[in-house]
Structure formats: structure tokens, C-alpha cells
């Protein structure tokens, strides 16, 4: 067993442990932090596949931004753990069925020849091979139209999210920072010129 295989098993074991803890941890904040650990180990697995761009981007986007916002929301919620656990056994059969179905589907897809070790023999790239450069080149040449389409869909989603949450409350005394910043001292302060002493004394 070479070093790479050992590293793979360490990352994989940690990943599975973290993923299990995400669903079994009682405290939602702990669960979110275990999810962070899971992302890290997934990034590590990608690094062993020489996909350093994907690995670093996973950490940057999901750990650095998405999970921070997740934690932001979870920490602000007043979560009643007892109430969350109500109805667990009632929903259990449905959830178990769905889970088994998903696992079966994945097994069916992944066990075919398209995903076997024959289809992906694993290429060893030289030291000067840059995964980042290669991905960038492909994205902006061969896959430029799907890439642009995806960005337009994301843009629409951003605008939709902004429009859905945009509301102006009438009863709030509202500050307009633009006006505040634009204030000049002459608007607020008038300097009077007057003699320091009374005249004629």
C-alpha cells in the first residue's frame, strides 16, 4: 500500500465519519461544523486526484462563504431540539424508502462500465501540468456557450432573490447613507464674522 492509498483511506474514513455526524449530531451548530470537516476531506480527496483547482475552490466557496452564512443563520435561530425530534419515527419509513432508492440508483449508475476503473484509468500528469489553466482553457473555448448559459441562469437567480426579498417598510425611520456622505460642512455649519470686542469701548 503506497502513501497515496493510505492518504485516500484516511480522508475517506474522516469524510464518512463527518458525514455521519452531520446527521446524528444533536446540536445544529455542531452538525454544520461537521459538514465543514466533510467538505475539507472531500477537498483532500480531490487533491489526491490532481484536481487542485476543484479542491481549493470547494474549500473557498463552500467552507469560506456558504458555510459561514449557514452558521450565521443557524446561530441566530432559536432552535428547540426536542421539537425537532418529534415525529422522527412517523417519518422514518418514508425517509428510509427514499434513502434506499437513492443508494440503489447510485449503485446502478456507478457499477456500469461507464464509471468503472476501465473507463477512468486515472492519468498521471507531469509536474508542470496545471489543472487550473486546463479548466480555464476548456471553459472559455469548448464549453463557452454552456458556461455563459449557466452564468445567465445564476444572474437571473440573483435578481430573483433580490426582488423576492426587496420590501420597503413604511414604519421604519430610514437613513440614506448616500445623502449622509454627500453632506458638506456648509450645509450644517455657518461661520459668522463678528468683531471680537464691542465697538466704541
Amino acid at each position: 500500500m503506497d502513501l497515496k492509498t493510505i492518504i485516500f483511506y484516511v480522508f475517506a474514513a474522516l469524510l464518512i465519519f463527518a458525514a455521519l455526524r452531520v446527521i446524528t449530531a444533536r446540536n445544529p451548530v455542531h452538525a454544520a461544523l461537521y459538514l465543514v470537516l466533510a467538505f475539507f476531506n472531500a477537498g483532500g480527496l480531490w487533491l489526491t486526484l490532481q484536481a487542485e483547482f476543484l479542491a481549493i475552490t470547494l474549500v473557498m466557496v463552500y467552507v469560506g462563504a456558504v458555510m459561514v452564512l449557514f452558521l450565521f443563520v443557524i446561530m441566530m435561530l432559536d432552535i428547540d431540539i426536542k421539537r425537532l425530534r418529534q415525529g422522527f419515527w412517523r417519518n422514518m419509513p418514508l425517509a428510509a424508502t427514499l434513502g434506499v432508492l437513492m443508494v440503489a440508483e447510485m449503485a446502478l449508475v456507478l457499477s456500469t462500465d461507464y464509471f468503472g476503473p476501465v473507463a477512468f484509468p486515472g492519468t498521471k500528469m507531469g509536474a508542470d501540468y496545471s489543472n487550473t489553466r486546463e479548466l480555464g482553457r476548456l471553459l472559455f473555448t469548448d464549453y463557452v456557450y454552456p458556461f455563459e448559459l449557466a452564468s445567465i441562469i445564476l444572474l437571473v437567480a440573483i435578481i430573483a432573490a433580490v426582488v423576492l426579498t426587496l420590501r420597503r417598510r413604511k414604519d421604519v425611520k430610514h437613513l440614506d447613507p448616500v445623502q449622509q456622505v454627500a453632506v458638506k460642512h456648509s450645509d450644517r455649519l455657518r461661520v459668522l464674522q463678528m468683531p471680537a470686542e464691542k465697538e466704541g469701548e
Binding site: 487542485e52 483547482f53 475552490t57 474549500v59 473557498m60 467552507v63 469560506g64 496545471s130 487550473t132
Partner: peptide, 13 residues
């Protein structure tokens, strides 16, 4: 090779 990405990723942690 992806030094800038590493920098952004780790400093965001």
C-alpha cells in the same frame, strides 16, 4: 501553481 486560490481559500477560513 494555484497560489492565489490557496491564499484566498485559507485566509477565508
Amino acid at each position: 501553481d494555484a497560489g492565489v486560490l490557496f491564499l484566498l481559500a485559507v485566509s477565508s477560513l
